[in-house]
Design a binder for these strands. Structure first.
Lengths: 346, 346
DNA sequence: AGCCGACGGGAGAGCGCTCTATCCCCCCGG
DNA sequence: CCGGGGGGATAGAGCGCTCTCCCGTCGGCT
C-alpha cells in the first residue's frame, strides 16, 4: 500500500475538531453534539478513514479476533500436518462448526483465525499466538480425547471454549450434546420399526461421546426387551464403518437394524449391506448420527440423530465472547438436545 | 488476562540492557554480542516474554496475517450466508485449498483468517478488514465468475492473489490449472479404453474453466475421430450431476463413456448409471475431474483428472507473500499441469 | 602515533489510537 | 448578579514496539 492511510488526526483536522471527538463518534460513546457527529461522519466519508486495528488493540488490549483451533493429540510431523488439515476438512462436521462460528462472529465484524494443532510444537504455537495478543481467545475442537491443548490453555489463563466435555476436567467452558439421549432416540426408532436383531457400530471407546451414545442405545434396547446388542468399534470414518459392519455381519447375518455412531460410518454400513445384497431399509434399517451432509447425499438418505452442530458452535462463540468481555468468569457447560431426522434408511 | 504480560522494557531491565538491544535479539537483526544475546535470551525465558503483535504491527505496518476469502457473486441475506459457509465446506475442494494454504503459512508462523463474502456488505467488510490493517493481503477463491471482489481489491490497491483466472482481467496475480489439457487427458483415457459413444457433463458455461475443459475434451475427441460429443451443463454439485446424466441418458442410452467436469458430478453420474442398471466401468466408463476425496470414496472409486489443489493453494500463499514483501510488484499467472489418476471407474 | 571506519549498544521519537483528567461555557437557582 | 453544576469538547499521556540517529570503543592502516 503506497497511499498513506488517513488517520484519526486527518479526520479531526478535516472536521475541525479534536482526535478525541472523532474517536467518540467512531465508537459511539458518550454524548456528542449531533451537528458535530454529522460533521465528523462527513469528514470520515471524505477522507476514506478506516480505524487502524493495531493501534486500537494496543490500547484496548483486545483484538476482536478469535482462534478456531482444530487439535489432536498426536506428535505429528510437519508434512502430516497438511494431511491432518485435509482430513479434518473432509469431515462434514467441521464445515458445520465453521458455519456456526462464522454465523455468530460475522454480525460482530469479527472473523476466525484457523489453526491446526496436531503436534506439540503446533500446540505451543497456539498458546504463543494467543499470548502475543493475536486473538482474544480460542474455540477448540479436539479430534482426540487425550488432547493436551485445553489443559495448556487453562494453565496459561487464556480464554477458551471447548466443543465437547474434556475427559480430564479442565477449567474451561464447553458445549456438548446429550449423547445418551441421542443413543436412546436411535434405539426408539429401531424398536418402533419392529427390528428384533439389532447391532451397533460405536465410535472409539476412548471418546466419552461414543460411550454415552452406546449406553443410551443399549439401555433403551434393554428396556425394550433386547438386553444383548452386538457392538463393533469404529473410528468415525467411512472405512472404519465398512470394517465394523463387515465384522458384525459375519457374526450376525440375521441383523435387522443397525445404529452407527455417526453418519460417515452409517454410510459405510450401507455400502457393506448393499454389497452383501441386503436392502436398506427393507431388510436392514440403519440409523446414523449427526445429521451431517452425507446423511442427505447417502443412498439411501440416512435417518439420523441430529446434532445441532451449528447452534453448538455459535454457542461456543457466544460463550467465548462473554468470557473475553469478562461478563462470565466461571466455566460453564451448555448442553444441547439431539432429535431424530427421519429419511429413508430407517 | 489479569496478570500483566511482560514487555520489552521488563526484559531489558532484567537483562540490564536497553529495549533496542532486546528488540534486536528478538528479531535477529544486526550483530549483537553473543554473550549479551545469551543474557537477553535468559531474561526472556525468565520473564516469559512474548512480543505484542499489535505494538509491532503498529510500527511495521505489517500484520503477518492473511485473509482466506471464499467469495461468490451473490446478494445474499444474512441467514443464507451461513448456508453458503456450510455449502462451501461440504465441497472437498476447499478442504484441499485450506490444507495447501496452511501448509505454506504454518512454517512461517502465520495463520489464515477465514472470511466468506457472498453479499455486497460482506465484500465491503473484506475490503475494510484489509484496509484496517487486520491482514496484509487476501487469498481469494471465487465460487462464481462474476465475483466483483477481485476488482474491488485491485481498485483499493490491496495485495491479493486469486485462485483461477478471473473472466474480466484484473491487476492481480493468480494461479490456475491448464484446464484444456485436463479435458484432453480425460478424452485420451476414454479413447484408449475404446469408448465409441461418449458424452460429457460440463461445468457452468459461465465459468472459464468449464469451457476450457470442455474444449480440450472435444478437440481431442474430434482428433480421435469423434467430432460430435453430447454435452449437458452441470453446476459442479452432486445433484446437478444427477440431473445432467439423467438428461444425457434419455437422449443417448447407448453411451459408453462419460467425462464429468468434477468429481462431485461424476459421483452423480455413477449414481444415475447404477440406478439405470449400467455397470461402471464395464458398461460405461466415467472420468471425473479434481481427484478430490470423493473420487476415492465413491463407488466405484473414480478415475479422475488430478488438479494439484494443495500445490496451487500453496503457490497462492507464496505469491501473496512476495507481493506483500514487495519482492514482486507486477501481477503474474502461475499455471499447473493436470495428470490422470487411474482408479476403477475408467 | 594519529586517524578512520566498523561495530556494538543506547536514547528517543514516533506508529494511531483510547481514555482520563481537565477545561470551557452555558444554564439555572439562590 | 454570582456560584455551582453539568454537558460537551480538548489536551495529553501513554499502550509496546521498531528504527533512525548517535555515541563510544576498538582494530587496522598509514
Amino acid at each position: 500500500m503506497n497511499r498513506q492511510a488517513p488517520t484519526l488526526e486527518d479526520v479531526a483536522r478535516e472536521a475541525g475538531v479534536s482526535r478525541a471527538t472523532v474517536s467518540r463518534v467512531v465508537n459511539g460513546v458518550r454524548n456528542v453534539d449531533p451537528a458535530i457527529q454529522d460533521l465528523v461522519r462527513l469528514a470520515i466519508e471524505r477522507t476514506g478513514y478506516a480505524p487502524n486495528r493495531a493501534a486500537r488493540s494496543l490500547v484496548t488490549r483486545r483484538t476482536g479476533t478469535v482462534a478456531l483451533v482444530v487439535s489432536g493429540a498426536g506428535d505429528t510431523s510437519e508434512e502430516e500436518q497438511n494431511a491432518f488439515a485435509a482430513r479434518v476438512f473432509s469431515d462434514p462436521f467441521f464445515g458445520r462448526v465453521v458455519g456456526g462460528v462464522v454465523g455468530f462472529l460475522r454480525p460482530r465484524s469479527t472473523h476466525p483465525v484457523l489453526m491446526f494443532a496436531e503436534s506439540p510444537e503446533a500446540r505451543e504455537e497456539v498458546v504463543r499466538y494467543l499470548r502475543q495478543g493475536n486473538a482474544d481467545g480460542a474455540l477448540v475442537v479436539s479430534t482426540h480425547p487425550d488432547d493436551p491443548l485445553p489443559a495448556l490453555l487453562a494453565e496459561a489463563g487464556l480464554p477458551a471454549v471447548l466443543f465437547a466435555r474434556p475427559v480430564r476436567p479442565v477449567a474451561l467452558s464447553h458445549v456438548d450434546l446429550a449423547h445418551w439421549d441421542g443413543g436412546r432416540i436411535a434405539a426408539e426408532r429401531l424398536l418402533a420399526r419392529g427390528c428384533r436383531k439389532v447391532a451397533t457400530v460405536s465410535g472409539p471407546w476412548a471418546v466419552a461421546a461414543s460411550q454415552e451414545r452406546l449406553a443410551g442405545f443399549r439401555d433403551t434396547m434393554a428396556r425394550g426387551g433386547h438386553p444383548y446388542v452386538p457392538v463393533a468399534e469404529g473410528g468415525f470414518t467411512l472405512d472404519s464403518g465398512v470394517a465394523a459392519m463387515t465384522a458384525l455381519l459375519a457374526e450376525h447375518p440375521d441383523v435387522e437394524g443397525v445404529f452407527a455412531a455417526n453418519d460417515l460410518m452409517a454410510q459405510g454400513v450401507c455400502q457393506v449391506l448393499r454389497e452383501r445384497g441386503r436392502r436398506v431399509p427393507d431388510d436392514v434399517a440403519v440409523v446414523g448420527f449427526d445429521d451431517s451432509s452425507v446423511a442427505a447425499t447417502c443412498r439411501p438418505p440416512l435417518t439420523s440423530v441430529r446434532q445441532p452442530v451449528e447452534d453448538m458452535a455459535a454457542a461456543m462463540a457466544r460463550l467465548l465472547d462473554e468470557h473475553v468481555r469478562g461478563l462470565r468468569t466461571d466455566p460453564v457447560a451448555v448442553l444441547f438436545e439431539p432429535e431424530l431426522v427421519v429419511r429413508e434408511s430407517a
